[in-house]
């Protein structure tokens, strides 16, 4: 039997590419330059499967790839998938849940401490030669230990952040979620509250919800006005869960104290985005899962999911909306 044709649309370590070449007739994009949506469309024609990272999989792309059976996304989020279009054409989508949770939770804690204690701002302060006197009462931050963190969206990553906050830093942890998490409440001493209550009492508000119609702009003008004046917002989930214009306004008017952001409504950010000029805002470029170890593990997962589907005829890591379809 001949090997199925497949496309690798994102560079991976050699071992993973070797594995893909063993099981498929593999083509790749030109990785010496950054690739665009059009590059993927141009290469999708004859392939049955593709490993992608964040490429928009829409009706147009699918219409160029009439032989496609499966698209394997390297990341856990898959809002690049146009699910209805994929379902209509019978194309399966896979993702990589579970693998990056601890790595993202680490990064969320990094954002939380760095905004509270002004680490990025003070690093620049020192590097730019502005540290000229020993008295530093103008450089005070906010305590982490003993403060209250409110987690909106208590999934696996939420629980890992809760564990770090509660067991590691003795923070009070409250959460809001569609459903109660009894096990987390017992093991980690976290407490369920309604969203408004969470916003009112938290020193740090951490967003860890997936992006859905319900969570779109879950924080907007009304929500920021309920928060404490010295509260800090952390978002490492998806940009559009925050109404970014409302956030910018709240920050400009001093209605909240700062923000630690890894995701934005538009990525990469526009160069004139006011967030880029705010010292009390951390702007990392969507790197919460970005460690070498995790990137390799995610790419392995996507490669194995595609090979399993095409070669072993077994659907694994299918996105929840398609469970049972394959």
């Amino acid at each position: 039997m001949s090997k199925p044709k497949a496309l690798l649309a994102y560079p991976v370590v050699k071992e993973i590419q070797d594995y893909l070449e063993e099981f498929t007739n593999l083509s790749t994009l030109d990785f010496s330059k950054p690739n665009t949506y059009e590059d993927v469309v141009a290469a999708i024609k004859d392939v049955e499967g593709a490993v992608v990272l964040g490429t928009r999989i829409d009706e147009n792309l699918l219409s160029h790839g009439s032989k496609l059976k499966v698209i394997s996304n390297i990341t856990v989020g898959y809002n690049n998938f146009h699910i209805e279009a994929m379902k209509n054409r019978g194309v399966a989508g896979t993702h990589s849940p579970g693998i990056l949770d601890n790595t993202v939770a680490d990064f969320v804690m990094g954002l939380l401490i760095a905004t509270g204690r002004r680490i990025t701002e003070l690093n620049s302060f020192v590097k730019e030669g502005k540290w000229t006197r020993i008295d530093n009462s103008h450089l005070f931050g906010k305590d982490i230990s003993g403060s209250t963190v409110g987690i909106i969206g208590m999934g696996r990553i939420g629980e890992m952040v809760a564990k770090r906050c509660s067991l590691g830093f003795d923070m009070d942890v409250v959460y809001y979620n569609r459903s109660r998490k009894m096990e987390a409440e017992e093991k980690l001493g976290v407490r369920y509250v309604e969203k408004d209550e969470l916003l009112k009492i938290s020193d740090y508000v951490v967003l860890l919800t997936p992006l859905t119609d319900e969570t779109y702009h879950i924080l907007s003008h009304n929500e920021f006005s309920m928060m404490k004046k010295d509260a800090i917002v952390i978002n490492a989930s998806r940009g559009p869960v925050i109404d970014e214009l409302a956030l910018i306004e709240a920050l400009k008017e001093g209605r909240i104290a700062g923000a630690g952001l890894d995701v934005y409504e538009k990525e990469p950010m526009d160069l004139d985005n006011p967030l880029l000029k705010m010292d009390n805002v951390i702007t990392s470029p969507h790197i919460s899962a970005g460690t070498q170890k995790t990137m390799n593990a995610l790419a392995w997962n996507a490669a194995k999911s595609m090979v399993s589907f095409l070669v072993h005829k077994k659907a694994i890591n299918i996105i929840p909306e398609m469970k049972g379809d394959f």
């Binding site: 560079p11 950054p34 790197i287 070498q292 170890k293 990137m295």
Partner: peptide, 11 residues
């Protein structure tokens, strides 16, 4: 766009 591996760090 596309530089997702620019700041790969350590777990």
């Amino acid at each position: 766009k596309g530089d997702v591996s620019k700041f790969l760090g350590k777990d």
